[in-house]
Design a protein around this nucleic acid. Structure first.
Lengths: 193, 193, 193, 193
DNA sequence: AATGAATGAGTCTTCATTCAT
DNA sequence: AATGAATGAAGACTCATTCAT
């Protein structure tokens, strides 16, 4: 795949599209608007992205890559600490990208198989691998790790969406409750209130 | 005596709209199509629903009402059994209405404040009340019940969506894993693998 | 032509239609609205009027009949006084029915031959006859009375429209100027500033 | 170099819209029809005009500009001749654009403040200025020139509409009568039959 | 590579009128 | 006579995408 000439232009499109999507929604934003904001012509957008949806996908991918990185960085601690840190990292990352959380959520309901589902798979693998490790070393109660990965991944995304999109309660309350629930549910040597 | 507003006609619109939404998506379905399928004229649809979105909302409400009923019916058992039964009832209801689960998920990401969010609130209240009761009688570990209700409600919806929309794994695996996770996370006298 | 049963109902339709037309324009007012305001059913309107336009026509006719009466009442005075009084009577009548002046003006531009053009013709005849009389007795300069009648009739209507619809100047200024112009233009024994 | 906005295309839209409006009325003409007649795509029309009404306004403006020019050209003669020539020029211009006279008349009754009212104001100013000059030099009887300008301008428009839209009488009769009426009404040194 | 004018398919909704009761 | 539910034609406008330059 030949990279298009000017990465800065691609970046500009992404950046301005994100800003406009946040302000007016994906449907409410037109390609000419994005082009104009990025200081290029309408047609030029199509040299960098095959369609409007590709721009959306690029933004989703960007978010998920960051999400994976944030989580990956916390996997090496002891299980209990790692669990807390993973949730915390996920929360921080989500709070800093609340608009993309909403964007992903919208797109996920649509016509399935988009490119960034790849990133989704990577995230699930990371989690599954970690769960396997924890279960082998006995720090985590055995579960079906395929299901568990999907479940936990969704749980974090869901709670982030509620927390940063709709709720006006303190995010910490959400994070704490979630951590506690997961500790109780997953850890072998944890049983307090 | 003149012709009266006909509930059967409203029903027909709902039914045929649901079928078409399932086949072609909401955006892909036109009002004239729905009218034609229901055996009435285009304009007649607007005697029963103010807009296309109202039809979607009616379907969402219908689903949520059923969901609440299904859950309500299981709250009186002992906590442990109730937990299992609630999840099971929710799964059964979701599996029977997988198309509406997807529909709700799409709409939830949109411009918020629609009528059926009311039903959402009812569901959250039902759960919160039950959690309170369980915690008071000591069968459940104390949590912030507001957060917990949102968390669990979302968890079930999320896992249903994955399970019935994307996954091809046996739904029982999802249900069992979820039940186990919740038992471990919530119950005071439960700690097994 | 068989009069429909209830003249009060016809009156109610007219009255409420006029009020609604004034508030929201003809296009902005629907038949069901008029019916509802008049306390009857939609279909009933069509027992009294063949179409929406018939209601408009009835209102135009009503205005023109009043206009003719107002003018007729002033024709017997000496020419100079009559001229002043005609213009004054027309102005007063127009100011009291500014909404109908606007309504007539809109409809006049449309598909020609409507019933109330009959009333128009009557008005033109009244004026023409009076002009003839005045010219015969020598108090008025000879003109083509057919053209003159149309011209004067239009002049009054036009100036009323400007005066009561758009302008915010004192109507008296318009009336005085018009009277003066007509005196100068028409009367044999008048030539002052 | 790319394709530039093409004035000829704008002209084509105007021209074909005018023809269609004349044949089938404004409401009876659709944008796709206009586009098709002008040999372009529907959407292209919207590159040149923001809405259907903008096309109508452009036609009205075009007419009024011509009207002003026609009148302006006649203002330098001696008052009596100028008066005749103004009326004549207005009549000729109106007769050549009878469809636009009708169009303007329709729009004037609608929601006021459209761009071409500007042209209206210019016309009134031209007339008022000329009246002032004539009154100063003593060739015209003093009147309130603001009112007089509106009155005369409306009179000409009105009589043109009657003459070219409805009447089947010889236009010359209308023109002659109008000239005579104005001569009698306005000029100081004129008093014949 | 870049441009931006041109394309044209696509759709919700209104409302005057009808007609079964 | 009265009702009011039902009809269904009709149309302006948007905007993702293309392609001539």
């Amino acid at each position: 795949m030949v990279r298009k000439i000017d990465p800065a232009k691609r970046e500009a499109i992404i950046t301005h599209a994100r800003k406009l999507f946040k302000e007016k929604g994906v449907e409410g934003t037109t390609i000419p608007e994005i082009a104009s904001a990025a200081g290029i012509a309408t047609g030029t957008v199509y040299l960098y992205f095959k369609s409007k949806m590709e721009i959306v996908n690029a933004l989703c991918e960007y978010y998920l890559r960051g999400h994976i990185q944030a989580i990956n960085a916390e996997l090496d601690s002891p299980t209990n600490k790692a669990l807390k840190d993973i949730v915390h990292a996920a929360f921080v990352h989500a709070s800093e990208n609340a608009d993309l959380v909403r964007l992903i959520d919208q797109r996920r309901s649509e016509d399935g198989k988009t490119s960034w589902l790849e990133a989704d798979r990577v995230l699930l693998n990371v989690l599954r691998t970690w769960f396997n490790k924890c279960m082998e070393e006995g720090s985590m109660i055995p579960y079906n790790t395929v299901v568990l990965a999907e479940l936990i991944s969704g749980l974090v995304e869901w709670i982030s969406k509620i927390c940063f999109t709709w709720s006006d309660m303190d995010p910490t309350r959400y994070e704490d409750t979630l951590v506690k629930l997961l500790q109780n549910a997953l850890l072998t040597d944890y049983k307090e209130t």
